[in-house]
Amino acid sequence: MARTKAPNPEVRRRILDVSLDLFATKGFAATGVQEIVTKAGVTKGALYHYFKSKDEILFEIYGKVFGRELDSLQRIVAEGQDPERTLRAIIVDLVVHTADSTRESAVFARGGHAESPHWQAMQEQWRRYQEGFRQVIRDGQESGVFAAKASPEVVSWSVFGFTNSMHTWYRPEGRKSPAAIGDELADLVLTGLQS
């Protein structure tokens, strides 16, 4: 009777790291499974032991990022602060998380991933995040704390456009920390929402 190999978290992590690097530099569609296994120093069998497909690797990468951001947003909203403080905290948190995930952002921006059940699940997480962000703005507008000059959709897309492009310009060694950048962006957004 053949013995099943025990899972090796280091091999799994190496496959994820190499895949992330390749997807960020070449794009998801242009990266082949053979290239991943060669760079990771594993066999195809090892890759398929941990992941059923290249798409599943991408889902794992995105799922962690989207899940972490959604959890953070829900935690901040649950604190029950006023709309200004809540929106500021969400924006700063999103900028800090995005700065920590620039390679993942680069993969997302490059696109080229297959429409699959995994992708649909990630899209649902992203929709939930967007709706939570917009609800904070709506609540602030309905209570008169925020002006209704701009819709929650336009405000949110302004912030998401900023964070989605961070992989092109943000550098960890730069003179501003992610929190300082987030505060500056929050100042800009909140000034635009002043009633």
Score class of each variant (00 low, 15 high):
89 A>C: 03
8 N>T: 11
37 V>M: 05
55 D>C: 03
123 Q>R: 15
70 L>M: 08
23 F>D: 00
29 A>R: 10
46 A>K: 04
159 V>T: 01
117 P>S: 10
77 V>A: 04
59 F>A: 06
156 S>I: 01
126 W>N: 13
125 Q>L: 15
168 T>A: 15
141 Q>N: 10
55 D>F: 01
145 V>D: 02
68 R>D: 14
104 E>K: 07
189 V>Y: 05
1 M>F: 12
155 V>M: 09
157 W>S: 12
40 A>D: 08
57 I>P: 00
180 A>H: 07
22 L>N: 02
126 W>R: 15
145 V>R: 13
90 I>Q: 02
134 R>W: 03
99 A>Y: 00
110 R>V: 01
174 G>H: 05
107 V>R: 01
163 T>C: 13
144 G>L: 11
63 G>C: 04
139 D>T: 14
43 T>C: 12
129 Y>P: 00
75 R>G: 13
107 V>L: 12
38 T>Y: 08
98 T>K: 06
69 E>V: 06
94 L>W: 06
149 K>C: 03
155 V>K: 01
58 L>E: 00
24 A>M: 07
66 F>R: 08
54 K>C: 07
180 A>D: 13
85 R>C: 10
156 S>H: 06
133 F>G: 00
91 I>T: 01
94 L>E: 05
177 S>N: 02
27 G>E: 12
126 W>V: 13
51 F>E: 02
189 V>P: 04
82 D>C: 04
134 R>E: 15
153 E>N: 11
15 I>S: 04
1 M>A: 14
14 R>M: 09
57 I>S: 00
39 K>P: 08
125 Q>K: 15
126 W>K: 15
83 P>T: 05
120 Q>V: 09
151 S>A: 03
148 A>I: 02
66 F>L: 14
195 S>K: 13
43 T>P: 04
19 S>Y: 07
86 T>M: 02
14 R>Y: 02
93 D>P: 05
69 E>H: 04
27 G>Y: 09
89 A>R: 01
27 G>F: 10
155 V>Y: 05
19 S>H: 09
149 K>A: 06
107 V>W: 03
154 V>S: 14
149 K>S: 08
137 I>L: 06
124 E>F: 09
129 Y>E: 02
26 K>R: 15
135 Q>S: 11
162 F>T: 07
4 T>H: 11
108 F>A: 14
92 V>L: 03
53 S>D: 07
108 F>I: 14
186 A>M: 11
159 V>A: 00
155 V>H: 04
178 P>I: 02
14 R>W: 04
119 W>K: 12
11 V>N: 12
115 E>F: 08
124 E>C: 08
58 L>R: 00
43 T>I: 06
67 G>F: 08
132 G>K: 03
93 D>R: 12
98 T>S: 14
180 A>P: 02
13 R>D: 13
18 V>K: 01
96 V>P: 03
184 E>W: 05
73 L>V: 09
24 A>V: 06
28 F>R: 02
13 R>N: 10
23 F>K: 00
185 L>Y: 03
166 M>R: 04
